[in-house]
C-alpha cells in the first residue's frame, strides 16, 4: 500500500472529498463552454464562467505518461518502486496520480485504467488508478474464485 495521508479540504474541494468516501469520483463541468475541469474549482479556467457544477466522472481513463520511481524520500522511501503517472480521464483532463495493484514493470502508456479509492482513515479517500482487467482476465479471475 502507498501512503495515504488525509487531504487538505477547502471550500473548492469539500464536495469532491466527501464523495470519495462513497466511492464516487467527481469532477467539475462548465455549463457555458462544456469543458471538464481538473483540478476542481468553481471558476472555469477555459471561459472564466462561474456557471460550473459537479459531475460524476466515469473514473475511467488511460495512462498518458508514467515513471517507475526507484528513489524517494519520507514515507515514500519504503514503498519503492512505485508508479507515478498522468492518467487521461475519459472526460478529457489529465491528472497526476499513482497506478496501483499492478506489476510496475508492465505499466505502459495507453493502458486502460480505472479509479480506486484508498482510505485515508479520515472520512475520505485518495483517488488512484489500477489497470482495467481485460474481459477474459476478469472471467478467469471469476472462475478461479469459483473453483
Amino acid at each position: 500500500m502507498l501512503p495515504a495521508p488525509k487531504p487538505v479540504v477547502n471550500p473548492d474541494t469539500a464536495e469532491f472529498w466527501k464523495a470519495t468516501a462513497e466511492g464516487r469520483f467527481l469532477g467539475r463541468r462548465c455549463d457555458d463552454c462544456g469543458e471538464a475541469i481538473w483540478y476542481p474549482r468553481p471558476i472555469c479556467p477555459f471561459c472564466h464562467s462561474a456557471n460550473t457544477r459537479w459531475e460524476e466522472f466515469t473514473g475511467l481513463g488511460s495512462v498518458y505518461s508514467y515513471s517507475v520511481v526507484h528513489r524517494a524520500g519520507g514515507e515514500w522511501k519504503g514503498v519503492t518502486p512505485y508508479v507515478l503517472a498522468y492518467v487521461e480521464l475519459d472526460e478529457g483532463p489529465r491528472m497526476m496520480t499513482n497506478i496501483v495493484d499492478c506489476d510496475v514493470d508492465e505499466v505502459a502508456i495507453g493502458d486502460k485504467v480505472e479509479v480506486v479509492f484508498e482510505d485515508t482513515g479520515d472520512g475520505n479517500a485518495l483517488p488512484r488508478f489500477r489497470p482495467v482487467q481485460s474481459q477474459s482476465a476478469q472471467s478467469q479471475t471469476a472462475q478461479s474464485q469459483t473453483a
Binding site: P7, V8, Y39, S65, A72, E75, M95, N98
Partner: peptide, 25 residues
C-alpha cells in the same frame, strides 16, 4: 490550491519523477 491532488505527500511525486513523466512521454 492544487496541492492535495498532486503534491509529493499524496502521489510520491518529486522533482526527478515529474521530469521523468515528461521524458517518458
Amino acid at each position: 490550491p492544487e496541492d492535495s491532488f498532486e503534491m509529493g505527500m499524496f502521489t510520491g511525486a518529486g522533482l526527478v519523477s515529474t521530469y521523468a513523466l515528461a521524458a517518458q512521454r
